[in-house]
């Protein structure tokens, strides 16, 4: 095990978007489940509407 391989926990593997540990107390926090639920609902809603229109 390389002990020197300390590239820091900051970077994600495709670090196009960087997330740091510090967060502002003012920020709105979203639960990860909310993100998934929103995605599923959006998909289902659009699909249902498409079926209703056709």
């Amino acid at each position: 095990m390389d002990k020197g391989q300390n590239t820091g926990g900051l970077m994600s593997s495709a670090g196009l978007v960087r997330y740091f540990d510090s967060e502002d107390s003012n920020a709105i926090r979203i639960d990860p489940k909310t993100v998934i639920a929103f995605g599923v609902l959006l998909g289902v809603l659009v699909q249902l509407l498409t079926l209703a229109v056709a």
């Binding site: 994600s12 495709a14 196009l16 990860p32 993100v35």
Partner: peptide, 15 residues
């Protein structure tokens, strides 16, 4: 979705 993977999952969503 990317943020969820980056914070709660393995790797990053974009990847």
């Amino acid at each position: 979705m990317d943020e969820v993977v980056s914070k709660w999952g393995v790797g990053s969503g974009i990847g």
